[in-house]
Amino acid sequence: MMMSLPPIAGLDADAVSHFVQSVLKEDLGLGGDVTTDLTIPADARLIATIQTREQIAVAGIDLAQVFFEALDPDVRVERLARDGDELQAGAPIMRVEGRARPMLSAERSALNTLQHLTGIATLTRSYANMIAGTSCILLDTRKTIPGLRAIEKYAARMGGAHNHRMRLDDGILIKDNHVAICGSIEAAVRAAKAGKSALPVQVEVDTIDQIEPALKAGADRLLFDNMSVEMLREGVALVAGRVPIEASGGVRLDTIRAIAETGVTYVSVGRITQSAPAADIGLDYTIAA
């Protein structure tokens, strides 16, 4: 039975418990860590230092801690950084002291989680730094690993992004498929507005001539999809501040600055969750006295 947990990494207490137990079950299976149980004395104790081997924006420290606590409630954990901190190579993140067997068994689950979330936060920080000084806001997307959306979007926040839709029920975004089925942008917007939802209606447009029809139909926000920088500038001038504008589609680290400088309100980047590499974070042990 796990201890009562506070909200952690974008998850409420029940979700934290479910996530940690599911990950541990995936790794331990039904028989547990047979190698550790056969080779490590039951009374052995270890001190573990978790540190980064590269420059990172860290995310997932509290969640990593819970894995160690789940297998050893008496483990002692010292957090040496906080989520969102930028750390240089060699910087310590956490020290853990406790019984060797549960610590070794929890190690991979804790590290996998910390490396994955920190990788997202680190890549996100790189994108956020590229548009620093502009008025443009970086957004994430729903391009996440199934089942991990809440913690991946948390990591994106730690890296400096704002969250776009978390789910399909917390935002209206009319895309090309909706338009095709409805027959026109105007018809799709009118249908969305007729539902009298409290949610703003955002419309995806990929040509300049779609902008005015969307605005006249009552769109509250526009998404300029896969437009060139020149088209973005033209579209921003045409909208003239009437609604917020989001630029999206194929945004890369080497293109995001030029996109942000066109005057769009937001730029969304699927890569920060979809393509972030795991951070190079290691764990070293010493035998405790």
Rank of each mutant, 00 (worst) to 15 (best):
H162G: 02
M94R: 07
Y154N: 01
V264D: 00
R157D: 01
P213R: 11
Q202T: 11
V34E: 13
N163G: 01
M2N: 09
D225L: 04
L71W: 09
T122S: 15
R242T: 12
E152Q: 12
Q115S: 12
D14E: 13
G147N: 05
S22T: 15
A100G: 11
A132Q: 15
S248A: 09
L46Y: 14
G183H: 02
A128I: 03
A121T: 01
L253P: 04
S275V: 03
L173W: 04
N177R: 10
L46V: 13
E107V: 11
V189W: 07
S22E: 15
G160D: 02
D225S: 13
D220N: 13
Y285I: 06
V251C: 01
P200V: 07
I47L: 11
A161G: 08
H162W: 03
D176F: 00
I93A: 14
R252G: 08
D12M: 03
G270A: 08
M3D: 13
R108Y: 04
L253R: 13
H162A: 11
A9L: 08
P92C: 09
A194E: 13
P92S: 13
A180C: 07
G32T: 12
G195S: 15
K153G: 03
S17V: 10
A155C: 10
K196I: 03
F68N: 14
I281H: 06
C136G: 03
A191T: 08
R252W: 06
M1S: 15
L139Y: 05
N129A: 15
P200L: 04
L168D: 05
S197H: 02
A247E: 05
G263L: 01
T118V: 09
Q202V: 08
E261M: 08
A188L: 00
Y127F: 15
R271W: 06
L232C: 10
P277D: 08
R167H: 12
G32K: 07
V189M: 08
I40P: 09
D74G: 09
S228Y: 02
S17L: 06
R99C: 04
Q88T: 15
R79I: 06
A219W: 02
V205I: 14
A247H: 11
S268K: 02
G171D: 08
P41T: 14
E54I: 05
V239L: 00
A156W: 01
I47W: 03
E230I: 05
V66E: 15
V179R: 03
D62A: 13
V201G: 08
S22H: 10
L46A: 10
I151W: 07
D74T: 14
T255L: 04
Y127I: 02
A48R: 11
G218A: 09
T255V: 00
V75G: 07
D284P: 00
A106M: 09
D220I: 00
L30Y: 05
E152H: 05
D284K: 11
G31W: 08
G270T: 06
D27R: 07
I172T: 11
P200R: 05
I272S: 00
N112V: 07
T286L: 11
H164T: 02
G171L: 02
I272V: 13
A155V: 10
V58Q: 13
T36R: 10
T122M: 04
P102G: 12
A289V: 13
A9Q: 03
R252M: 07
N226P: 02
D169L: 01
G250A: 06
L223Q: 07
L199G: 10
C182G: 09
